[in-house]
């Protein structure tokens, strides 16, 4: 159950959930840029504080964020090992027989770890408090200016929302085909390499066939109801930015500016 924490929407009623999705996406970008400003320890304190407020305002369980971060630890461990062997500058920290670990190896890994943690918390905060449909609507709105230079914003948004919509369907379909092939004697866990390749093939081919078929049916159904990709579409749900959205954006902007300030100053 917990393996799908990353990117999952948690329906709650909180301030974070009520923010305009466009404001949330822009705020996420601002904070992302702030994270990558080399403003040292001071800069991260500001970002950390604002994220803590965000978590508090989202009413989400801290455990949820912990679960989202778990897959990253393995990567960090690998990174630490590589840095320890490659980075040979700064003060030596500890020497074990002939091997010396230097301060820069640890601090660089630490920096990356802090950045990754902050990034994951921010994106989790966004996806956990925003419905996938709202996210696509917001993306479409944000991409609107790009239409002038011929960027197909409507189409991209439609593609994203269709893709999101069909993830559960595909999972269901996969499970169904696994069962059907298992009862024909396919063993997905054991067997020689050749048998395994065959087993995977017996899964992928039917999955592709039914996906193509479904795509074609969906396209026909959409066209039958008058869908033309390039034409402007109206929406039932209109997004509207209100005071609190601007306040949030202003605060995030302030954080970004202060990190830039710290970077230039120091």
């Amino acid at each position: 159950m917990n393996s799908f924490t990353l990117g999952r929407y948690i329906p709650l009623d909180s301030l974070m959930h009520r923010f305009d999705p466009r404001a949330k996406i822009v705020a996420m970008f601002l904070l992302m840029i702030a994270i990558f400003m080399p403003s040292g320890f001071m800069g991260y304190i500001g970002i950390f504080l604002i994220i803590c407020i965000g978590i508090y305002a989202s009413k989400l369980n801290l455990r949820f964020f912990w679960n989202a971060m778990k897959p990253m630890f393995f990567m960090l461990a690998v990174l630490l090992v590589i840095n320890v062997f490659v980075v040979k500058s700064g003060e030596p920290v500890i020497t074990i027989s002939n091997f010396t670990i230097y301060w820069n190896a640890l601090s660089q890994t630490g920096y990356i770890a802090v950045r990754l943690v902050l990034m994951i918390v921010i994106t989790t905060l966004l996806t956990a408090t925003t419905k996938p449909t709202d996210l696509t609507i917001a993306l479409e709105d944000l991409m609107k200016p790009l239409k002038r230079i011929g960027f197909p914003a409507n189409e991209i948004a439609m593609i994203i929302s269709i893709a999101l919509r069909f993830i559960p369907t595909l999972i269901e379909e996969t499970q169904r085909i696994i069962k059907a092939q298992t009862s024909r004697g396919v063993d997905l866990q054991e067997g020689k390499l050749k048998e395994k390749v065959m087993a995977i093939l017996s899964l992928i081919v039917p999955l592709f066939v039914s996906s193509y078929q479904r795509a074609e049916e969906l396209a026909n159904a959409m066209e039958a109801r008058g869908y033309v990709p390039s034409r402007p579409r109206t929406r039932y749900r209109q997004l509207k930015m209100v005071g609190r959205d601007f306040v949030m954006l202003a605060v995030c902007m302030l954080v970004l500016l202060s990190t830039i300030g710290i970077m230039i100053w120091l």
Binding site: A180, S202, S210
Partner: peptide, 29 residues
């Protein structure tokens, strides 16, 4: 092998290039 289970819409489990291969797939397994 004792119990053959035919799911709803079993046509979705076909995957081989020829019908011969597809029918022979089960016994070969």
């Amino acid at each position: 092998k004792e119990v053959g289970l035919v799911f709803q819409f079993p046509e979705y489990q076909l995957f081989e290039e020829t019908i011969l291969k597809d029918i022979a797939f089960g016994p070969k397994n």
